[in-house]
């Protein structure tokens, strides 16, 4: 069963077709990696999937529900969360408060005007658990602005985990990370496999081949190949378009 699928999804900016009649299917429980050269339309696709960008045509299904015209906030409530290529957290909040807010955001409306959030045991506990999961417990009281780049990436993962997503869109979670930090992130994503379905956009090929159950290659808004990582790696068209014959 597909956790997420698109049919004929299209988006163009002026004369540039960023997403071209795209059919993609992400199997329930799998980690599906999406690779492609710069400008292939990967981030555009993620933004269309999460609703921050409106599609020109085509449909997006979350499980069997058509979410094509659903506003982004609602999609999150239905279990579709994302991380950003450029880390997106709340810099003035502590790490704990960042995650507690993510837990609050999916726990019904926030028209509660009197009780301090800091006294809400549910949110604080969920935040604590998510921070522990990504290995940031010791930094809970630190403001997000004072965290290192890698830590902010981990924090963002903790935030999406606190939303208890069914499906996670990860936009280059390893971008700008050093080797050690990348290894930690791979380990973290590995531990999430099976628990959450993930669509991973990533340039780090070692990470992609270590993690992916399935691999799709996007070039100029089109999927040129989809399948098991080993198959895709051997696909001559992919080698020509992206991997470069010499590197394989």
């Amino acid at each position: 069963m597909s956790a997420l699928s698109t049919m004929g999804l299209t988006k163009s900016f002026g004369g540039i077709i960023a997403t071209n009649n795209l059919d993609l299917s992400v199997k329930q429980g799998s980690l599906h990696a999406l690779i492609g050269p710069n400008g292939a339309g990967k981030t555009t696709l993620i933004s269309q999937l999460c609703g921050l960008l409106e599609s020109d045509s085509g449909t997006v299904f979350l499980y069997d529900q058509d979410i094509t015209s659903m506003p982004p906030a609602k999609r999150v409530q239905r279990g579709l969360s994302r991380t950003f290529q450029i880390t997106s957290v709340f810099p003035e909040f502590s790490a704990q408060d960042n995650v507690a807010f993510a837990a609050q955001a999916v726990a019904g409306h926030s028209y509660r005007f009197w009780r301090p959030v800091s006294k809400n045991k549910t949110f604080q506990q969920q935040a604590g658990e998510a921070l522990a999961r990504v290995g940031l417990s010791s930094r809970a009281a630190t403001s997000a602005a004072s965290l290192s780049h890698g830590e902010r990436r981990q924090l963002e993962i903790a935030m999406v985990l606190a939303a208890k997503p069914k499906l996670l869109l990860l936009d280059e979670p390893m971008a700008g990370m050093g080797g050690e930090e990348s290894a930690l992130m791979v380990e973290l994503l590995q531990s999430l496999k099976g628990e959450v379905t993930m669509l991973l956009v990533e340039h780090d090929m070692d990470a992609v081949f270590a993690l992916a159950d399935e691999l799709s290659v996007l070039v100029y808004g089109r999927l040129i190949a989809t399948g098991l990582p080993a198959e895709v790696r051997g696909n001559p068209e992919v080698q020509r378009a992206y991997l470069g014959a010499a590197s394989v």
Binding site: L52, A73, K74, Q77, F84, S88, F93, F101, A105
Partner: peptide, 16 residues
């Protein structure tokens, strides 16, 4: 407060 700091993240967290 969250929306003041990062509106996109608030949307992406599930709140308009």
């Amino acid at each position: 407060q969250a929306a003041k700091q990062n509106e996109t993240r608030v949307l992406a967290s599930g709140v308009n």
